[in-house]
C-alpha cells in the first residue's frame, strides 16, 4: 500500500477493466518507492478520464481546464522548484486541446514529469477520434473511420528536443512504474506516453492489440543517450518500442536557465517580501 493512496474508500469514475486502474497502481507505487514527501507533490491535470487521476491520489492537485495541465504545471514548478510536479492527462487533452503548450513546454524544459494516458480515443466525451487514433478507427464522430494521419507524440517530443522521452503500456505495471519513476527523477521535462486500453470506446486498440503491437526495449542494450537511435525507434510504428527511448541529462532545466534564477536559486515563494521603500523611490 502506498501512502499516496486514500485511507478510506473512494468512488472512482472509471469503467471496470479500464487501463487507468493499473496506471494508477503504477503511479502510486512509483511515488511510494521514490519515498517522496506527500506534501511536496503536486499534480496538475486537465479534463478527461485520464485527467481525473489526481482525484484518486492523496496529494495536492490543480485539476484545471481541458488541455491546460502542462501550462499550470510549468508555472507551479517555476515558482516553487522544490515541489515534485506531475502533469497528467489524456491524448486528447495533452496532444489535441493542449498541443501548443506541449510544443512550447518541451522547449522550456521544466523539471516535471508529463504523463499522457494514450488510449487513442476521447473517453470522457464518449468515443470521438483523438489525435492519436489510428487510421480507419470508427468513432462516434468519424463514423466511416479516421482518415487523418495520427500524431506521433514521441517522435514529436524528440524532434522538439525533449530531454526525456519514454513510452509504456499498462499491461506491465512494474515496467510502467519504473519508467514513471525515471521520469520523475529526471531533472527536466520528461514525457511518458502511456498506452492503455479504453474498454468502452476503442474496440480496435484493445489490451491484446497493444500487447501484440508493442515490445519492451532491453534498456541495457538500447543507448538512451543516442538521439538517432531514439528517433529511429520513435519513427518505427510497425511495432511500438516501450521503455526509455531517450534521456539527455545535460540540458539545463527551466528553473536554472531562467534569468530569475540564474544568480539566485532561492525559490520565488521563499524570497523575502518586496521592500516598499524601493518601489517608492520610483515615484520620486
Amino acid at each position: 500500500m502506498s501512502k499516496f493512496d486514500f485511507k478510506h474508500d473512494i468512488d472512482i469514475a472509471w469503467c471496470p477493466g479500464c487501463g487507468n486502474f493499473p496506471l494508477r497502481t503504477a503511479i502510486l507505487k512509483a511515488l511510494e518507492e521514490l519515498n517522496l514527501d506527500q506534501t511536496q507533490v503536486v499534480f496538475s491535470s486537465g479534463i478527461g478520464q485520464a485527467a481525473k487521476m489526481p482525484q484518486y491520489i492523496d496529494a495536492s492537485y490543480f485539476n484545471g481546464l481541458h488541455g491546460r495541465g502542462l501550462s499550470v504545471a510549468q508555472a507551479i514548478q517555476s515558482v516553487n522548484p522544490k515541489l515534485v510536479v506531475i502533469a497528467e492527462g489524456g491524448d486528447g487533452d495533452m496532444y489535441g486541446e493542449g498541443g501548443n503548450h506541449f510544443l512550447h513546454n518541451v522547449r522550456r524544459n521544466p523539471n516535471l514529469a508529463h504523463i499522457v494516458h494514450n488510449n487513442m480515443i476521447y473517453g470522457l466525451t464518449k468515443g470521438q477520434g483523438s489525435p492519436t487514433s489510428p487510421k480507419g478507427l470508427k468513432t462516434t464522430t468519424q463514423v466511416s473511420g479516421v482518415y487523418n494521419e495520427p500524431l506521433n507524440p514521441v517522435a514529436l517530443a524528440l524532434a522538439l528536443g525533449a530531454s526525456f522521452v519514454g513510452r509504456a503500456f499498462t499491461g506491465d505495471v512494474e515496467k510502467t512504474k519504473e519508467i514513471i519513476k525515471a521520469a520523475i527523477a529526471h531533472e527536466g521535462y520528461a514525457i511518458v506516453d502511456i498506452f492503455h486500453p479504453c474498454v468502452t470506446y476503442n474496440k480496435v486498440n484493445t489490451f491484446a492489440w497493444y500487447k501484440n503491437n508493442s515490445y519492451w526495449l532491453n534498456q541495457e542494450e538500447h543507448n538512451a543517450q543516442d538521439f538517432g537511435a531514439a528517433m529511429n525507434l520513435a519513427l518505427n510504428q510497425e511495432k511500438f518500442a516501450l521503455g526509455i527511448l531517450y534521456q539527455n541529462k545535460e540540458k539545463t532545466p527551466f528553473h536554472k536557465a531562467h534569468p530569475y534564477y540564474v544568480n539566485d536559486s532561492t525559490p520565488l515563494v521563499d524570497r523575502p517580501k518586496r521592500d516598499i521603500t524601493k518601489v517608492n523611490a520610483l515615484l520620486k
Binding site: 496538475s44 484545471g64 481546464l65 499550470v72 504545471a73 508555472a75 507551479i76 515558482v79 515541489l83 515563494v269
Partner: peptide, 10 residues
C-alpha cells in the same frame, strides 16, 4: 493558466 498556476503555488 500559467498565472493561475503560479498564484496557486504562492
Amino acid at each position: 493558466n500559467m498565472a493561475l498556476g503560479a498564484s496557486y503555488a504562492g
